[in-house]
Amino acid sequence: MSMEMAKEKADENQTWRDLPLELLISVMTNLEIEDNVRASAVCKPWYEAAASVRIVDQPPWLMYFPKSRNSYELYNPSNAKRHAKELPESLAGSKVRYSKDGWLLMCKSFSTDFVLFNPFTMDLVVLPDLELWSGYQLVGFSCAPTSSDCVVLTIKDYDPGHVTIRTCSPGETTWTLMHVSSQFLDAKRNYVVFSNGLFYCLNLRNCVAVFDPSLRSWNVLDIPPPIRPDHIDDESWCEGKFMVGYKGDVFLVCTFGNAEPLVFKLDITRRVWEKKENIGSLTIFASINSCESRTYVQEGMLRNGIYFPKLCGNENRFVNYSFDEGRYRPRGHNVNWGKQRSSENIWIEPPENALELI
């Protein structure tokens, strides 16, 4: 190598190594967490810049009904404390149907009166009466009812080949009705995720449909379902599924007893469910009636893993699965979601002042 080329190489290395801290911080701010962590290993200045902008996500809390349908408890993973609260009298006996942005969509078993409820502030938003002769199959909402963009969604297939979609926003006095010719619905669990302005819905056959509330359009995606492993029977393949969104992406988690969970990422461009060997810095908090996801959760909590909505008896720890360790904790735990009461437990995003409210 000539002297001139060596000098150019040295100048190039020196430029990257000695970037001003302000410029480094600006670059690190725009990196995804995985790239942020990789960049922090380059040198000390890069580590300091990367760590300074690395936002630690607070975990969601676990909400469950240990005693009766008239009260509930909130468990805070950050300090392992439990907080017992009473439901408003009007919600006594109600069940949680969906959770998002710290709010719950609730109704009673044989009622069509949906209510949005914040279990931290105790605020209630009553929705218009919904006339359904045999209930619904899928339900969800887009964001907190404090936002003007909030849309509540219910989906039902009354007749073979026809899907009925109803939407409503807080403040409206009636539900908007829409009938669609579709063979989609065959739903047992409430698999709904709102991401990038769209509702993603999953049925038992692992087909995906998308509802756009702004355009009022319904589309069953031409994407083959994930391939069932040979050692998994049909019944197990239909149970223990969780669908979760993260920054525009949609993931599907499949669990089978104490076997390793399978994770698939929806790739609409390639029209496939892409199997993931691990989830990197992502942490998934799975529950039947909606899931939460975080990156770079606080120190001491599992990363590249999944938390399930079940406390280990009276112990202040959760059942979880670590992809790094390739095992459940505690060992030997059988995640049988068809028979566990933990199916009624749900993760919920706490407000920033949650500790002041409870």
Rank of each mutant, 00 (worst) to 15 (best):
V152W: 03
P20Q: 04
A51Y: 10
G171V: 09
Y200E: 02
R17D: 13
E86I: 06
L282A: 08
R38Q: 12
P119S: 08
F194A: 01
F120Y: 14
K44T: 10
W61Q: 12
S342G: 05
F256D: 15
G248L: 02
I268Y: 03
D230H: 08
F256M: 08
P60H: 04
S26C: 11
Y328V: 08
M106D: 07
L311K: 06
N334F: 09
R271L: 06
E299Q: 09
P77L: 05
P59C: 06
Y64M: 12
Q58H: 03
S94M: 06
Y158Q: 10
H333M: 10
D186V: 02
M28L: 08
V96F: 06
S40F: 04
V272P: 00
E4C: 07
S68W: 07
A41M: 14
V27M: 13
I155Q: 01
S181P: 00
L62F: 01
R341W: 11
I346L: 14
A80W: 04
S71H: 07
D35I: 05
V139L: 14
D157C: 14
H231L: 07
V335H: 04
N345V: 06
Y296T: 06
R228K: 15
L87T: 05
D234F: 05
W16P: 05
E239Q: 14
M301C: 07
D234E: 15
T121A: 07
V27R: 01
P309Y: 03
A6T: 09
R82D: 06
T167R: 02
Y136E: 08
V244P: 01
E299M: 04
L311I: 09
P170L: 08
